[in-house]
Amino acid sequence: MSLLQARGITLDIAGTSILNNVNLTLGNGELLGLIGPNGAGKSSLLRILAGLPGNASGSILLDGVELKKIKMKERARRIAYLAQDNSVHWPLLVERLVELGRLPHLDNWQQPSAKDLEVIDRVMQQTDVEQLRQRVFDTLSGGEAMRVLLARALAAEPSILLADEPVAALDPAHQLDVMALLQEHCDSGGSAVVVLHDLALASHYCHRLQLLSGGRTLAAGTPNEVLTEEILKKVYGISLRPGFDNPKDAITLPWEPSTG
């Protein structure tokens, strides 16, 4: 059985159709890339998967249970959402910010337990932000900030991570870092849906891709099945250049973080 399943998701806002009968399935350990042109409905779909309020119709099942019937705290422990707008409104210390990720596990008056602090330490290690603990979030670079926010999302120990363009503002090295972290999350039993614009990253890291355009699913499958010349031409109006036949061409393709 799939972990997360969306059926017949339709959303209209002020008479404009945003999503039209979209289906989506996410399996255990799967990294699913949502791609498509601006305005295709990717972010809207991700928000609906995250259970954010709105007037979308259709159903979402988490482990076979209707998402709306799951208590908010319980849902928050199982699905973490990394919004596209990643502003933090007060200049918090990094460790306090990551601690916010444990909120779904705490009652209203409960202080973080030793176990909570252990998880926080672990995710900070995993995302390599330990040395930033005592820094104020506002003073971080874009790459550091995204790793900290990812640590915040992972701190809830969610089985599903939903990330809306987590690499949009990052340089190639940090893009690879973040994608590698998402991959690690999926390799260790989690799953993720990530909205991406970079087709190379999508093809390299995602197990499956779902391509939205005009609120509909135009293609879904492995990267090789989705990123074909014909489909990309139809959706983006771009042509592809197969391979690198001339080594002198100044075209680079960031591929993986260098180790050491």
């Binding site: 928050a76 699905i79 919004a83 007060w90 209203n108 809830a156």
Partner: peptide, 25 residues
């Protein structure tokens, strides 16, 4: 009383606060 955690969550914006388990409205 007891609104502190919700206010902390709102530091990350209303959407994120919602996905952290708080009924923002």
């Amino acid at each position: 009383a007891g609104s502190g955690k919700a206010l902390d969550a709102l530091t990350l914006g209303e959407d994120t606060a919602h996905t952290l388990g708080f009924n923002v409205p």
